[in-house]
Amino acid sequence: GKLSLGEGLEKHPLENRWALWFFKNDRNRAWRDNLHLLTKFDTVEDFWALYSHIQLASKLSSGCDYALFKDGIEPMWEDCRNKHGGRWLVSLAKQQRQSNLDRLWLETLLCLVGEAFEEYSEEVCGAVVNVRTKGDKIAIWTSEAENQPAVTFIGRVFKDRLGLSPKVVIGYQAHADTATKSNSFTKNKFVV
């Protein structure tokens, strides 16, 4: 039969409403002024409609970010849902932009909208992809860095869903440590 998208066909609701943010680096403007809310969605269908109409991460200019966060949480450390939290960080080699970045970012998005972290999904605030010349990064942000059971569960699921080799180690960094670091390295609070 022919697929009908007419009246009476209900969309599949997500557990959360999500907001997609875009950051474009302009050194002449304040960091906050470079951050733009693109749109919000709360169904499977609207997620794909959005995903199908925006640039792939690998096509963004260096210095740009996408951030997908639960509605009501801004993608910055200062937000009350983020400030005691941290992030699982996956750093990619330069050559992985073409081979892996889009697949890994989509997998990250599917983890979020599908609520892949079971009873710990409520701890998830959002995810960020940073497109950078020196190497792209993908991170999942959680709300409480001291919640070890939740953080480590989320990290294990995230690593598994990305299909990373068991030999690869990813680290979780508290935003408080990242914000106060004196050099470019932030200590890992947990690793998986």
Binding site: L3, L5, H12, P13, L14, E15, V44, E45, F47, W48, A49, Y51, S52, E107, L110, V113, G114, E115, A116, E118, S121, R161
Partner: peptide, 20 residues
């Protein structure tokens, strides 16, 4: 009940969108 969707279910909708 929490609304959870596995990756295969979600990806199935991508292909529907791609074919429209």
């Amino acid at each position: 009940e929490k609304k959870r969707y596995d990756r295969e279910f979600l990806l199935g909708f991508q292909f529907i969108f791609a074919s429209l």
